[in-house]
Every structure is written in structure tokens, then in C-alpha cells.
Design a protein around this nucleic acid. Sequence first.
DNA 1: CTGTAATCCTGCGAGC
DNA 2: TGCTCGCAGGATTACA
Length: 275
Amino acid sequence: MPELPEVETVVRDLRPLLVGRSFQTANVGELSLRRKWDVDWNEKLIGRSVVSIQRRGKWITLHFNDGPWLLVHLGMTGQFTVNAAAEPLPDHTHLRFGLSGRADELRFRDVRRFGSFDLFTVRAQLEAFLDARLGPEPFAVDPKYFQKKLSGTVRPLKAALLDQSLIAGVGNIYADEALFAAQLHPSTRANDLTAKQCERLRMAVETVLIKAIEGRGSTIRDYIGGSGLRGTFQNEFTAYGRTGEPCVRCETPIEVLRIAGRSSHFCPKCQVANE
DNA sequence: CTGTAATCCTGCGAGC
DNA sequence: TGCTCGCAGGATTACA
């Protein structure tokens, strides 16, 4: 569910609610998340305060005072929020951490349990984990790097954009939205693009993500920000989920294809394949 | 090495 | 109503 704009929104919401405060209590549910953990959350985190919370790709990092780094992924349905401790506990809440100073707590709710929590003792371990998986942030991509990467693969553009090691943070929604904005067909072979088209796509990715962050991300079903607010960018979709609806540019009905295992929405008239 | 499928998990909407 | 099927913002693994 959550792609870069949603994760960024969660981090921005949580930052003022967490930084400088310490974890007082840990409450761990019966079911573990994607990776089975053998971590004693009480031992590792209780009594420590949050130094920083940041985003890298779709991952969230929490740095604790004099200690470990916590790495969190929201998977498809993860919700990472601060709530009043008295607020009723919804189903599928797997972790809770009581916070110092006020009667509230950090909660992790995840219906499908594709999310993950990992703990690293030193920063270098965390960075090695992330660097092994992630390419550059979309806002700091060298145009030449992007061209080179695309020219080096025959994969469809949609698959290339979803590859986190090429660019970090783009998921199914924003891949479709960026391809629509750049007027490129999702099944176009990446190495068929001209330099100009590569640059158009790179800029489209950046623009779409910035606009989505401004809208606090997209809520299709489960996504909420760190303070519980829904996103609004779903109201501005031009391609994703608009199958059969008129293209905002030419009114041709939007079509959907399965590419790289994901449904891919596009305008068959103004997103032309390079053949 | 490259690229696509299957997998993990729960819920929901469509169709019968 | 109630059942089955397919699909859903993702990452990883297993295989062609």
C-alpha cells in the first residue's frame, strides 16, 4: 500500500510526536510480521528515547539514544500511528509502545502482515541492509544514471520503475501515474527510450511524487498517516484505478494490462509504445 | 546473469 | 443470503 509519499507522510507526522520521547512499555502481539523476530523489544528499546525518524525509499528508520536502529516497513497494509492510550485497540494491532510524558502510544497495525520490523545495533549494519536493496532517492537521481540504467535493460518501463534498486520508493500507483504524465506506455522496453524520453520520465516521477506528498499520499483502502489522517491524492489519479474512465487528456477510456505481475493502467491513445 | 511467477496474509467486491 | 474467485499500496524466493 504505502509507497514513498505515504511513508514520507507517516514519518513527517510521527517526527514531532516521537523525537525526544522514550519508549516506556512494549506490548507485542501473538502474530509476528513478515520476518519472524527473535528480538526482545523490552530489552532493546525500553527506556531509550528517539533521536531521529527518517525515510529511505519505502522504509522508515528510527534511531534511539545510545543504541539501536529500528527499521520498519509498512508492507501493503501497515499503519504506524500515535494514539491516545485510551483509544480502543483495533484488530490486527501487532505492536504497541507506550511513550513518555503523555498518555499516548505508538501503534503498528497491519492486516496482511507484510510489514516488517528489524533491529540493527549499529548504523553501518542498517546502511548495508538498505544499500543492498535500494537505488537513489527519486529526488536525487542523476539523469545520466537513469538513462544508463534504462538503456541497460529490456524490461518493460513499468517493471523498471518498480525495481527498488533502480530508484527507491516508486510503487504501483506512482509508476502508473508517472508513465501517464510522461506519456509513455508501461510495456515499452526500457532500452527503447530516447535520451529525451528518459529525462521526461525521470522528471515525471519526481513531479508526481512531490504532488502526492503535498496531498499526504493516497488512501485507497487502508492507508492512514502517522496521526491517523487519510491521504487525498487518490482524488487526483489520472491513470491508476481509472479503468474504463476517460483519459483526462484525450477522453479515450483508460485500459489496464498486467505487466510484471501488477495491474498497469494507461491511456492507449496518448501513451504510445515505442516500436 | 535476467526476468517473470509464486509466495506470504487477510479482507472485500463481483458474480453466481 | 452465502459461497467461490480474483484482486489489493510490497519484497523475497524460487525457478525458467
